[in-house]
Design a protein around this nucleic acid. Structure first.
Lengths: 350, 350
DNA sequence: CTTAGCACTCATCGGTGTCGAGTGCTAAAA
DNA sequence: TTTTAGCACTCGACACCGATGAGTGCTAAG
């Protein structure tokens, strides 16, 4: 009986979780009444705790230890209980200022985003570079480097840049290369990989004048590069903030550090979370082993998509121990996500 | 008396160090005679060990513990004792093959170098991107992205690419931008930053026709970017292989992990080692706190310059615990350094 | 429904004793 | 003079013990 969530129990749960997040030690009934001046005795609190445990929101490690939240407990906290306070105007200003300083350096954005996320959420941060759903050709440049070697710089519509080298049979001067690049630019501007492939196939061989050997070679590289980009679309994940989480008590055994590194570097355990975040609006919070992923049992992730919908998007978020300051982390992820979205919006036109 | 380094003592020292590197536990006299079938008794070995300790080549943590090498011991080992065996042809082939696969992707080289170093030397790897001593302008491209925003892609003679965005007062079409870029390319090709600055100053205002506002803006960005590149010349260090060293016993306390992270991410403690390696031929081995750097007392680094002398150079190497398989690490660093040097040589002409 | 009281549980910590690895020394053997 | 056997001594590692104390669960009274 009475296994229902009364208002008092909710408040108690909230306090317990906040306290645990704060102190990283199991919270005892006694401590709660003292610290927060509850109008009831510790015994009552204990009774309530027992009910919350029955409901699956709390556990304890052994009989004479304080309570700690379960995944479900955290989930309920995140969804119904926690105070959603955005970052302070002061913090927002600082962050905006940092981004303002690198506003023109596209490739710094993800570094900065990861660094700021890590510092403000005190967790490991992960950011995937913003990518278009499908690569579209924007611009090619061929630059003579040395005799028969040519630097091929490829720019896509989402701002991604790829550089490759090309080795030719005979040396050509910059003049010729520029003309070839110009021609390819005209042929391919705004095209998808499929359309460019056609230029190379029989179908495309009807173009006049026929493609020079340089042009063919360059086009082949372009097609290869575009396929490559689409394959590894959101696979490469930039991360930062290892140092931040090392100071947290849950990482006092190296084994944990190794696990996190494996998640961050190889994406082990992250599984479908990134694509999922990419496909859905709003903030995704995954607590512990919620989705049955064993490697993640001890960790939580908060992810958010960012970017211009339908044009160029990425995912950013934080990874930390299950005992994570959810309100703050979520606010941080949300804010940085917005900042990045705005930046990209300015770049590509909202 | 008799505190001199006889042949037998040298051989003993070599064995002790090899054994310690292997097992990570202080080595006992008894173990040595048994494992290597020495023609003397453990007592004799103990006497010899005492002499080696007197010479400052060995220590022990407490009276009844086996011996471990001191920095000087390792140093003597590296310089006079160890077997210098290059990587096996099999390994060399594997490595060359891996590099062959990414031969055209310039920006993959440092990633691959770090990854291969880390895996083969079982240590943390660090690689600075290859840089010219001073930046020289190679090529500029201006690409209209959206209304008044323009993507500026800047290529330097050493292959470095920088991308920036530029916001103009009014929108211009690609035609105009390309013409401006072409003009700047003509003006700046192969120039150093100083010469380009002159174009912007009073002295340069005599060019005809006078620079358009777009051209001025672009030039300003170019100058800024070149200064930036020269400042952070070899400051950014790419690293890899944290996971490799985590499994080593010396990193069983997180504190050590933090230290290494701080060295790798912020270059703390590396101090002048990188510039030093950049300035000298051959392989640099720094063992423990040899050069009085306290943060490094527990670690050793092996660095090598790579690249085309006088044209474009970088530094690569490994960082590991003092107890490091020096012969193997040194061979690996040497080999990868050669591979990278060859790759760059092909690119820029030997 | 709340609470005081109390028994019970369990991790933590300091202290103690034992064990074994390893050295250092000494005196005898080579 | 060098080597070696023998042995005392040192010190870390480990297990065990009991005390301590935090914290719960239960019960019976308010």
């Amino acid at each position: 009986m009475s296994a229902e969530l009364t208002e008092r129990r909710k408040q108690l749960l909230k306090l317990i979780i906040q306290e645990y997040i704060d102190t990283a030690t199991p919270v005892a009934s006694e401590v709660l009444v003292r610290k927060y001046g509850l109008p009831v005795s510790s015994a009552t609190v204990r009774n309530e705790m027992a009910v919350l445990e029955e409901l699956g929101l709390l556990t304890h490690l052994h009989t004479s230890a304080g309570r700690i939240p379960t995944d479900a407990g955290y989930r309920y906290f995140v969804e119904n209980l926690m105070d959603r306070s955005p970052l302070s105007p002061q913090e927002q200003r600082t962050i905006r200022h940092q981004f303002y300083q690198v506003r023109s350096e596209l490739d710094q954005w993800i570094h900065l985003a990861a660094a700021v996320l890590a510092r403000h959420a005190q967790a490991a941060a992960l950011v995937t570079p913003p990518r278009a759903y499908e690569a579209r050709y924007k611009h090619l440049e061929l630059i003579a480097i040395h005799e028969t070697t040519v630097l091929l710089v490829l720019v896509f519509q989402d701002g991604t840049i790829k550089q490759q080298t090309l080795t030719l049979n005979e040396s050509h001067d910059q003049e010729v290369l520029s003309r070839s690049a110009g021609r390819i630019n005209q042929l391919c501007s705004g095209r998808r990989v499929g359309e460019i492939e056609q230029l190379l196939s029989a179908e495309g061989s009807s173009i006049e004048p026929p493609l020079s050997s340089i042009e063919r070679l360059a086009l082949e590289q372009i097609v290869r590069a575009m396929h490559q980009i689409e394959e590894q679309a959101n696979e490469q994940i930039h991360h930062d903030g290892l140092l931040e989480i090392l100071s947290q008590p849950e990482f006092s055994q190296v084994e944990r550090v190794r696990q996190v590194l494996e998640i961050l570097e190889h994406g082990r355990g992250l599984g479908p979370l990134i694509p999922q975040a990419l496909a859905s609006d709003g903030i995704q919070v995954v607590i512990g082993g919620e989705h049955g992923r064993d490697e993640m049992r001890e960790y939580s992730v908060i992810l958010s998509r960012y970017g211009v919908d339908g044009s160029v998007v990425g995912v950013l978020g934080v990874l930390g121990p299950r005992r994570m300051p959810y309100p703050r982390s979520i606010s941080t992820v949300r804010y940085i996500s917005n900042v990045m979205t705005n930046l990209l919006g300015e770049l590509y036109g909202e």
